[in-house]
Design a protein around this nucleic acid. Sequence first.
DNA 1: GTCCTGTCCA
DNA 2: TGGACCGGAC
Length: 235
Amino acid sequence: MTSVNTIVEVLKRLETLYRPKVEDYIALNLLKPSVSDFEFLVGVILSQNTSDKNALKSLNALRNGLGGILNPDSILSTPLEKLESLIKSAGLAKRRTKTLIALANWFKENNEVIQKLRELEPKEIRELLTKIYGIGLKTADVYILMKLNKPTFPIDTHIRRILSRLGIFSTTDGYEYISSVVVSIFNNNIDSLKKLHILLIEHGRKVCKAKKPLCTQCLLNDLCHYYTAVKQGSQ
DNA sequence: GTCCTGTCCA
DNA sequence: TGGACCGGAC
């Protein structure tokens, strides 16, 4: 089976297993239409390198601490130390506060670009966002795919691990290479890209875990190079 | 004690 | 390219 066929098969199987609801997506109810672009990005920033529980806790604390209003002005009018203590539970508070302020400033200073953001190509949006301190490719891509509904594929630690175990990509392949190949496999189909992103993370958390993966009960194991090696090693 | 989880910088 | 950065659930 080619890599292309494998990844299409992976999506098909995971869909039957988990029946994903895109609207329940990760990081904290961020897909409700009432959530602004700014708020969405704040939520994704708080979830970087952080468990969902801690991220949610800090997002709620931040929103409450700002009087329920989470926008560039409320961030910029709040003392640094207060922001740091509000988001403390997500960890890395100093660095992340710096990012929130950089993001708020960017929103204030780039009104024209922001109005036209939806007309830009994913690659152009990526380049704009990753210039902001603390926003990298993954955070930018989550926003571009999940909020702007444009074709890109965010690669998080689960996704990288699963795709390399399956043998579809190598551990040394770069982020942008993996992302662009997946996008082209699904021919810019937004719905499939969203589902694949969510499903792979789900599968990575529950089955294809970093430590002690549950290979024998994995419904992808017949496709998986890692499992083949495990089986051979145990014989 | 272990796991969860991206970005920056030397 | 490898380490530093952090808090909280279990």
